[in-house]
Design a protein around this nucleic acid. Sequence first.
DNA 1: GTAAAAATCACCCGAAAGTATGAAAGGTAA
DNA 2: TTACCTTTCATACTTTCGGGTGATTTTTAC
Lengths: 162, 162
Amino acid sequence: MSRSIIIYGLAMAALLILLKWLEWRFLLFDHAIEVYSGALALIFTGLGIWLALKLAKPKVQQEAQPAPKDQVGPPVMAIQGQLPATSDHAPDENELARFGLSGREQEVLQLMAEGLSNQEIADRLFVSLNTIKTHGSRIFEKLDVKRRTQAVEKSKRLRLIK
Amino acid sequence: MSRSIIIYGLAMAALLILLKWLEWRFLLFDHAIEVYSGALALIFTGLGIWLALKLAKPKVQQEAQPAPKDQVGPPVMAIQGQLPATSDHAPDENELARFGLSGREQEVLQLMAEGLSNQEIADRLFVSLNTIKTHGSRIFEKLDVKRRTQAVEKSKRLRLIK
DNA sequence: GTAAAAATCACCCGAAAGTATGAAAGGTAA
DNA sequence: TTACCTTTCATACTTTCGGGTGATTTTTAC
């Protein structure tokens, strides 16, 4: 993205230099300025379109390698050795340990992932709403996310929960 | 869309006229041409961006509507058994049609699933927060859920989104 | 060209989520 | 016993979500 801006700047500089050259080259023309203007306008319109598409496109940025969906092959060999044979629906213990989620926190996270509200989770676990909020904050902190939706996305992607 | 092009044409004309006026007004400056060029470049870059945003909007999805005919063939069992012939990362068109989500709604839903807040989605799609809220309400209504977490859970389970 | 659908935006308001801070009880290990 | 962790709960506060309503503009379909 920032690269696009740099490229844009370079293109702008190059075109202005080109303009300068044209100015010197064809100074004779009376209406050169109009031609220049039109060409400039068209060129930079195109540049703008390109820029807009560049900037509007980038959608997903992955900051972590999604855990391979299949336990096949000789995986990239995790950060700290691992035993691959995890079942399809069992949380990855090693990944889990990486974030240090306590048992209760995992429970809450699981229920969050199922779409329950904090109040519903509190009722389900027979604790107060405030307690769930506290757990929630801890979870977000440990997973380094800001919202429950992010926590769910990340924990599912990393197979922390089923 | 065609109106956008007309507006673009008019804007270009107006700006060239403005340029002509500036030329007459400040002809004294030696480096006026550079200033003009820079201003023109910036203005038309902006115009290009605007144009791109206007024109590039309805470029992808759409035409997801032609399936009101409920060919209730294979869908329901798609949860885990064998997903229909669709690729692993492509939404299930049949399921999708069942809920009648529009193109924009699918986009918003996808971003919700990635953990973005309404404000972030609004920024990403270059629309207002209120618009995203409206889309959200429609999505929840169509999916028959109450919260975004539920919408994400359900749509992922039914493979409405990747 | 008109009608319908989709997309956009606004305002209000209550509910839910999340932050910050503090604290108390119980279990565990050094 | 002390130190630490987990779990529980509370109050106060800010932010985000989501419902309801109404509206305009743009696109698409006929």
